[in-house]
Design a protein around this nucleic acid. Structure first.
Length: 495
RNA sequence: GGCGGCGUAGCCAAGUGGCCAAGGCAGUGGUCUGCAAAACCAUUAUUCAGCGGUUCAAAUCCGCUCGCCGCCUCCA
C-alpha cells in the first residue's frame, strides 16, 4: 500500500516514489505579498500542510519549501497607491500572512525563500538560458523563447497555435513570439532595481521559482504544488525555464488544488473567489468568527481538487460536526471509571472492529489522493461507535472495554490531527465554545444558574408548569437545558 | 474557439467495474425523559443529469446530448 497522488502532468493517480527513497521534496508557490490573504489562500496553505503532515505520519522525511514573491508589478503598483516603498509593503504583508498562518495553527515550511534574496541565482539561470539560445535580451528586458522549447505546453496541454487564437495577448514589439515571457524586466525610474548584465531591472514572475527550487531541492524534485490557476502560465513557464536550463526533468508530480467559490447573489451562481472580482473573504475576517478547526473541517470536507463553495451554513455545519467529534472524546474522558473484575465485555465484535480498523480505513482514504472527505467520514463513523458503546457502558466496567475506548480516543485524535483538528483537550474546546456562544446570549451565566436552581426546586415539587416555563424562558434566550443524572447542564443554541 | 473539470438523496459529500451506493447537516418514527434536550436505534437515492454502447457485471469504461465551472490576463 502506498500513497497515490493525482499528477496534473499525466492526468493520472500515481504512486508516490520519491527520488531519494523515504525523502519527499516538495515545493509550493506561496503568496505575492501585497494584500491580506483570503480563504482561497487558506485552502492552499491547509492542503499542503495536510499533505506534509500525512506524508510525515506515513514515515516520510519531507523537505517543504514555500516561497514569498516579494517583488512584482502588483506590489509596486500597490505601494505607489499607498505611498510606501515596495519593500516595506511586501514585508508588512508577509507579517500579516504569518498572523493568518498562526491563526490556522500551521507549521512553517522548512524553507521559506524570498525572491528578493535570490536575485543572483535568477540572474545566473537567465544567463544559462541565454547561452543556450533559449532566451534573448532586448533593450534591458530578457525573454524566454517558447519556440525553442519543444515541450512547451505539456503541463497545461495546449499548443502555441491554439493559444494565440483566442488569447488576449498584449502586443509587444520586443518579443519574437507573442507567447514569449519575461525573465527580466528593465526598471523605469523610481522602481526597485537590481544590477544585472542587462542593466538595472527586476526578475519576471516565473524565474524565481525555477531558481529557488533548484537551489533548495535540486534540478529534479518530487512534488510541485499550487492552485489550479497556476497551471498556466506560471507552472508551464517554470517547466520551460528549468528544463531548458538544466536538461533534466523538473518535477515528477504536479499537485493542484481547486478553488474556493462563493455565491454571487446577483447571478445566483457560484464563481471563483478572486481579487479581480472583489468577492473575496479574508482569513482575518474568518478568524474573528470561527475557531480555526471549524475552517479546517469545512475545507477538508471536500477533496482538495474539487471546487468548494463557501457559505455561512457550511461553516455552521462544520462547527456542529467538530463539536460532535469533541463531545465523543469528552464522553470517554468523563467515564466514571470503576473497573470491575470481570472478563466480559459490552463491546460487540463489530464495534471492536470499527475501532481497531479506524487507522487502516483512514489511511486508505488518505492514500487515495489525500481524500480527506472520506477520511473524515471514518472519524465520524468511529465517533458514532464510541457513542454507542458509552451509552451501554455499565457502572462497573470491564477493563477490556475501558482499554478499547481509550484506544478509540487515541486513534480518533491521532487521525484527526493529520488534518489539523482535535488539537485541543475536548473539555477545553467545549468549554470555550460555550463561553464564546455565551457572548451571543442575552443573559449572563449567573442568572442562568439561578433560574436552573429555581427550576430544579420546582421539579422536585413536581411543579412541571413552572419548570417548563423556566425552560422555555431560557430557550427563548437560546439557552438549552439538559437534565442528566448528575444535574442540569446548559448550552447556548446557535441558529 | 482551444484545453481541463464537474453533474450522486432536501443540502454538503465519498465512491480505485462485482457484498445492502460511505459520512456529515437537515427531516421523520422510536428508546430514554415528568415533558424536553443530548445520545442511541430505525428510517430517508430499486438509483447515480439524459440517451446509447462495451461487459457475465458500470455511478464507475467509451460515445453523444443537455447543464454548470475553471484556465487561455494578475490570481490559491
Amino acid at each position: 500500500m502506498s500513497v497515490r497522488i493525482y499528477n496534473t502532468l499525466t492526468q493520472k493517480k500515481e504512486p508516490l516514489n520519491p527520488l531519494e527513497p523515504g525523502h519527499v521534496k516538495l515545493y509550493v508557490c506561496g503568496i505575492t505579498s501585497y494584500d491580506y490573504c483570503h480563504i482561497g489562500h487558506a485552502r492552499s496553505s491547509l492542503v499542503f500542510d495536510m499533505i506534509v503532515k500525512y506524508l510525515r505520519y506515513c514515515g516520510y522525511k519531507v523537505t517543504f519549501v514555500r516561497n514569498f514573491t516579494d517583488i512584482d508589478d502588483k506590489i509596486i503598483n500597490r505601494a505607489n497607491e499607498q505611498g510606501t516603498p515596495p519593500s516595506q509593503l511586501a514585508a508588512r504583508f508577509i507579517d500579516e500572512f504569518y498572523r493568518d498562518m498562526d491563526y490556522l495553527g500551521l507549521q512553517r515550511p522548512d524553507i521559506e525563500p524570498k525572491a528578493t534574496e535570490h536575485i543572483d541565482d535568477m540572474i545566473g539561470l537567465i544567463e544559462t538560458l541565454i547561452a543556450k539560445d533559449q532566451a534573448y535580451a532586448v533593450d534591458g528586458d530578457v525573454y524566454f523563447a517558447v519556440e525553442h522549447f519543444p515541450a512547451y505546453g505539456k503541463l497545461s496541454r495546449r499548443r502555441l497555435e491554439d493559444m494565440q487564437a483566442g488569447a488576449r495577448i498584449t502586443i509587444n514589439e520586443k518579443k519574437r513570439h507573442p507567447m514569449d515571457f519575461a525573465l527580466w524586466k528593465h526598471s523605469k525610474a523610481g522602481e526597485p532595481a537590481w544590477d544585472s548584465p542587462w542593466g538595472p531591472g527586476r526578475p519576471g514572475w516565473h524565474i524565481e521559482c525555477s531558481a529557488m527550487s533548484k537551489k533548495y531541492l535540486g534540478d529534479t524534485f518530487d512534488i510541485h504544488g499550487g492552485g489550479k490557476d497556476l497551471i498556466f502560465p506560471h507552472h508551464e513557464n517554470e517547466i520551460a525555464q528549468s528544463e531548458a536550463a538544466n536538461d533534466k526533468p523538473f518535477v515528477n508530480m504536479w499537485v493542484h488544488h481547486g478553488f474556493v467559490t462563493v455565491r454571487n447573489e446577483a447571478t445566483a451562481e457560484n464563481e471563483k473567489m478572486s481579487k479581480s472580482l472583489g468577492n473575496f473573504l479574508t482569513i482575518r475576517e474568518l478568524s474573528e468568527k470561527y475557531h480555526p478547526e471549524i475552517l479546517k473541517l469545512f475545507i477538508f470536507s471536500t477533496q482538495y481538487r474539487n471546487p468548494l463553495e463557501y457559505s455561512e451554513q457550511a461553516m455552521l455545519d462544520a462547527e456542529t460536526g467538530l463539536t460532535r467529534l469533541y463531545e465523543s472524546i469528552a464522553g470517554i474522558d468523563a467515564i466514571k471509571r470503576k473497573p470491575a473484575d470481570i472478563a466480559g465485555t459490552v463491546i460487540t465484535d463489530k464495534e471492536a472492529d470499527k475501532i481497531d480498523s479506524l487507522e487502516e480505513r483512514f489511511r486508505q482514504a488518505m492514500d487515495n489522493d489525500f481524500n480527506t472527505a472520506q477520511a473524515i467520514g471514518q472519524l465520524f463513523d468511529a465517533a458514532k461507535t464510541v457513542n454507542k458503546i458509552l451509552r451501554k457502558l455499565p457502572e462497573e466496567q470491564a477493563p477490556a472495554d475501558l482499554a478499547r475506548l481509550d484506544q478509540a480516543r487515541e486513534a480518533i485524535i491521532r487521525q484527526g490531527r493529520v488534518i489539523g483538528i482535535l488539537n485541543e483537550p475536548a473539555q477545553v474546546f467545549l468549554e470555550r465554545r460555550k463561553r464564546e456562544t455565551i457572548r451571543d446570549a442575552v443573559i449572563d451565566p449567573a442568572a442562568i444558574e439561578t433560574l436552573i436552581a429555581r427550576r430544579n426546586e420546582a421539579r422536585k415539587n413536581k411543579d412541571w408548569k413552572l419548570s417548563d416555563a423556566i425552560r422555555d424562558e431560557l430557550l427563548a434566550k437560546s439557552v438549552e437545558l439538559k437534565d442528566g443524572p448528575d444535574g442540569t447542564t446548559w448550552s447556548v443554541k446557535r441558529d
